[in-house]
Simulated scan of single mutants.
Amino acid sequence: MRTRAGVATALALPLALLPTMAQAGSKTDQGASLGDAQGGKKGQNITVRTKVQTTVDGAPGSTKSGSLSSTDSNWTPPACWYEPAFSPKEIQSTVKTWRNFDISFFYGIGDFIGDSLDQRYKNGHPYKNYNLDKQGEGMFWAAAVNPNRKDEPEALSCDKPPFWVDEGDPPKEPLAVSPQVLAEYAYDELPVPDTEIKMAPTGKSTVNLPTWIWLDKAKFKKLSVTASLPGTGLSATTTAEPVSLHIEPGTGDAETYPASGECAINEDGSIGEPYAKGKAGKTPPCGVSYLRSTGDGESYPLSATVTWKINWTSTNGDGGDLPDGTFGTTQDVTVQEIQSVNR
């Protein structure tokens, strides 16, 4: 009797190779995990779970706090690409497995799927005998989806079924994995910290009195992510460095310090300056003054957004800049009137 796990393993590859709607999650002998095969713009979107690995600052397993948004509205990290996925023997053995498989309510499905696969990978349309004569001389490449962007329409743009690439030959497919693709994927994996600003006074701000704002230098520092594809020698490192904090008071009845609301990073890596006794009459290097109080139970949504400068390098010498990234948070600020005592 076949177990459920055995059935899932048998289903994995053929359903990923056919233009059907299916789910699978087994491991291939190359270590790839098959993801969902979904309908794309041409009726199919054949995908595998990517084998790309990432490390943060050289240490894997770092906790990701937030995702960067590109300051270039015309650019986003790639939603999908093609990467080495299947050997000739793997496709051949899976077709044989299918021909011995049937489902009670869909008699003959095994032969049907086997015939469909053989048309492409055995009978010369376009491959002959699964390319077994090239075993060890190349791989079938398949579409992989960026897990951070799997729900975006662009994730369906890699809609070609697995295709053969000889070992050492660069694939002619523009969306094939490359150092730049890895660098752009690493952009999505940068674990930028939450933008939780410190403010003084805490609690309630007061009309016309400056509120000091700053960020801890120990938290906001340069970080990097390296993305690599095992067995290919392809690797790229993407580095992000904080450069400024932008303040939006949440109302037009406010003044920011500086007037632009853009607080530059200090030489020691901090942003702004902590408030201390004796600074009440000074203008903060980073802060805000509210000109109107909030009503009872109301608040202003103050947003604080850090801008990160991004660049990348790779094992083949390629590299350059990527669009700046931003990540921010919003917090509610209550503003009270100055209280005075009449004698």
Results as ranks from 00 to 15, higher is better:
residue 167 E to Y: 07
residue 167 E to N: 11
residue 168 G to D: 15
residue 168 G to M: 14
residue 169 D to E: 15
residue 169 D to A: 15
residue 171 P to R: 14
residue 173 E to P: 02
residue 174 P to N: 13
residue 174 P to V: 12
residue 175 L to M: 15
residue 175 L to T: 14
residue 176 A to D: 10
residue 177 V to F: 03
residue 178 S to H: 04
residue 178 S to G: 05
residue 178 S to V: 07
residue 179 P to R: 11
residue 180 Q to E: 14
residue 181 V to T: 15
residue 181 V to L: 05
residue 183 A to M: 05
residue 184 E to C: 04
residue 184 E to W: 06
residue 185 Y to N: 02
residue 188 D to H: 05
residue 188 D to V: 05
residue 189 E to Q: 14
residue 190 L to W: 07
residue 191 P to N: 03
residue 192 V to T: 07
residue 192 V to Y: 01
residue 193 P to A: 06
residue 193 P to R: 08
residue 194 D to I: 02
residue 194 D to V: 06
residue 196 E to R: 08
residue 196 E to V: 08
residue 196 E to H: 02
residue 197 I to D: 01
residue 197 I to S: 01
residue 197 I to V: 15
residue 198 K to T: 05
residue 198 K to W: 01
residue 198 K to Q: 07
residue 199 M to D: 00
residue 199 M to H: 00
residue 199 M to T: 13
residue 199 M to N: 00
residue 200 A to L: 01
residue 200 A to Y: 11
residue 202 T to M: 07
residue 202 T to L: 07
residue 203 G to F: 03
residue 204 K to F: 07
residue 205 S to H: 10
residue 209 L to K: 14
residue 212 W to G: 01
residue 212 W to H: 02
residue 213 I to P: 02
residue 214 W to M: 03
residue 215 L to D: 01
residue 215 L to V: 04
residue 215 L to I: 04
residue 216 D to N: 04
residue 216 D to F: 01
residue 217 K to Q: 05
residue 217 K to C: 00
residue 218 A to F: 01
residue 219 K to W: 00
residue 219 K to D: 02
residue 219 K to I: 09
residue 219 K to L: 05
residue 219 K to S: 03
residue 220 F to H: 08
residue 220 F to A: 04
residue 221 K to P: 03
residue 221 K to H: 07
residue 222 K to N: 01
residue 222 K to H: 00
residue 222 K to F: 00
residue 222 K to R: 09
residue 224 S to D: 13
residue 224 S to H: 08
residue 224 S to A: 15
residue 224 S to L: 09
residue 224 S to R: 09
residue 226 T to A: 10
residue 226 T to W: 12
residue 226 T to G: 08
residue 226 T to P: 13
residue 227 A to P: 11
residue 228 S to D: 12
residue 228 S to G: 07
residue 229 L to G: 00
residue 229 L to Q: 03
residue 230 P to I: 10
residue 230 P to V: 08
residue 231 G to C: 06
residue 232 T to F: 06
residue 233 G to H: 10
residue 233 G to K: 12
residue 233 G to S: 11
residue 234 L to D: 11
residue 235 S to C: 09
residue 236 A to M: 14
residue 238 T to L: 12
residue 238 T to W: 11
residue 239 T to K: 13
residue 240 A to D: 14
residue 241 E to A: 14
residue 241 E to S: 15
residue 242 P to Q: 10
residue 242 P to W: 09
residue 243 V to W: 02
residue 243 V to L: 04
residue 243 V to E: 13
residue 244 S to K: 15
residue 245 L to F: 06
residue 245 L to D: 03
residue 245 L to M: 10
residue 245 L to W: 06
residue 246 H to A: 12
residue 246 H to C: 00
residue 246 H to K: 15
residue 247 I to T: 06
residue 247 I to S: 06
residue 247 I to A: 05
residue 248 E to T: 15
residue 248 E to G: 06
residue 248 E to A: 14
residue 249 P to V: 10
residue 250 G to I: 09
residue 250 G to M: 08
residue 251 T to L: 08
residue 252 G to R: 14
residue 253 D to G: 00
residue 253 D to F: 07
residue 254 A to S: 13
residue 256 T to Q: 08
residue 257 Y to M: 14
residue 257 Y to D: 10
residue 258 P to S: 10
residue 259 A to I: 03
residue 259 A to H: 02
residue 260 S to E: 08
residue 262 E to A: 10
residue 263 C to D: 00
residue 263 C to P: 04
